[in-house]
């Protein structure tokens, strides 16, 4: 057990070394969502209303978690393609360590991304209104979503064949992001789109965060429950699939 923890930490720290080696890449990544937030807040804020920025930010936090899928997938497929995964598998380490190391590294990455975005939002006047306790609960739900999406990313990373498919997922990320309650309330969309957006896991987390932060926006029924259940469901599906895929590497 302690061996697994030690190995996990060594592998997660590899990611920190990546940040040090290529600081520009990670920083641009962290600032990317800040840019999106500024762009949409600025573009639509005028048309939609003064409190649009406060509405948008919790959605942007959820979107930041969602963008992590791409990072996880890229890292996993690169390691597999470069043979690094095989080298890990030929070492006398526990196979769980490799996956847990990935988890820890990606959660750290997303947490920093979240802190950067929250900092930027706060600098522009966004606030949580209902106390630190409820704000922390919101951050917890956001990281829970990220945790669930880790398994989606690991699964996709093991399934895709090389960098071309990564590009495809990078493109698909956008419609999924737009078809949700991140940017606008699904109730304002044409009904069939609205229904899809309503059921998007991102919408649940965005709505529950708005509720917990006390930010504007209609909070649908059971938002909190859905924000907890969706990630658990995704994890229940994709964790076993990832493990299965990992096993299949050897067959």
């Amino acid at each position: 057990m302690t061996a697994v923890l030690g190995e996990t930490w060594v592998l997660a720290r590899r990611e920190l070394t990546h940040w040090r080696q290529q600081p520009a890449g990670v920083i641009v990544n962290w600032l990317f969502t800040v840019m999106i937030a500024l762009m949409f807040g600025g573009l639509f804020g005028g048309a939609i209303g003064e409190d649009y920025f406060d509405y948008l930010m919790p959605g942007m936090f959820a979107l930041t978690m969602f963008f992590g899928v791409e990072a996880t997938m890229t890292a996993v497929s690169t390691d597999a393609a470069k043979g690094v995964t095989d080298r890990f598998r030929s070492l006398p380490i526990h196979s769980a360590s490799v996956v847990l190391g990935r988890c820890l590294a990606d959660l750290m990455n997303s947490a920093v991304g979240l802190v950067v975005l929250v900092g930027a939002a706060a600098a522009l006047g966004w606030r949580w209104q209902e106390g630190l306790g409820r704000a922390l609960a919101a951050f917890g739900l956001l990281l829970l979503l990220r945790f669930a999406l880790l398994w989606v990313g690991i699964f996709l990373g093991l399934v895709v064949k090389g960098p071309e498919s990564v590009t495809m997922v990078q493109i698909l990320v956008w419609p999924v992001g737009f078809l949700s309650g991140v940017f606008v309330d699904p109730a304002t969309m044409p009904s069939w789109l609205g229904t899809i957006a309503q059921w998007n896991p991102l919408s649940a987390t965005a709505a529950a965060s708005r509720d917990l932060f006390g930010n504007p926006g209609l909070i649908p029924d059971h938002a909190m429950l859905l924000a907890a259940l969706w990630p658990l469901l995704l994890t229940a599906i994709f964790l076993p699939l990832s493990v299965h895929r990992h096993r299949r590497l050897g067959s």
């Binding site: 061996a3 190995e7 060594v10 592998l11 590899r14 070394t17 990546h18 080696q21 290529q22 470069k82 043979g83 690094v84 095989d86 080298r87 890990f88 030929s90 070492l91 006398p92 380490i93």
Partner: peptide, 27 residues
């Protein structure tokens, strides 16, 4: 030890950082 058909090293890390990483993973 295994040296695979394609060099299985982390391209972002330096040579030394790679060896330290694999050393740590060899306990």
């Amino acid at each position: 030890g295994l040296v695979g058909q394609y060099a299985a090293v982390d391209e972002i890390l330096s040579g030394r950082q790679n060896l330290v990483l694999f050393g740590r993973l060899n306990h």
